[in-house]
């Protein structure tokens, strides 16, 4: 009925779940703190529009470590990873399309209220 995974190195019992050693967790924490420091420091370096992408990249790396090791997705069933990544993909889909709408629309927008006279409607088609 169940094709449960048998943990590696688990002493006795039903073999549920792999154990992440504390040393590794501590190492990950140190890594995360270092990356946090880098993120804050990077803010003072002006790279123009790249800044946000670098900050996001570092945040993604931090997130990846938290997900893989603290949430032990690395040692878990692949389907759980699919669920998590799937949810991120759907968020990306939503953000990208909604952003595409406002980005393509904004340059066409008048400021202020709509024109009062009917003839000016002709001018509103790009």
């Amino acid at each position: 009925m169940s094709h449960g995974s048998h943990s590696s190195g688990h002493a006795g019992g039903h073999g549920v779940g792999h154990i992440v050693p504390v040393g590794l967790q501590f190492g990950i924490l140190m890594l995360l703190l270092v990356l946090t420091y880098i993120t804050v420091a990077a803010r003072w370096i002006d790279l123009g529009p790249l800044n946000i992408w670098i900050a996001m990249l570092i945040a993604t790396i931090k997130a990846a470590f938290v997900v893989l090791y603290f949430m032990h997705l690395r040692y878990d069933r692949p389907f759980n990873s699919i669920i998590f990544i799937g949810s991120l993909l759907f968020v990306a889909l939503f953000v990208c399309l909604a952003l595409a709408d406002t980005v393509t629309n904004k340059p066409r927008m008048w400021t202020g209220l709509a024109p009062a006279v009917a003839e000016t409607q002709k001018h509103s088609d790009p």
């Binding site: 449960g4 073999g15 549920v16 779940g17 069933r77």
Partner: peptide, 8 residues
Amino acid sequence: DSLTQQFD
């Protein structure tokens, strides 16, 4: 049927 199944 098993703790493993329940855990999963």
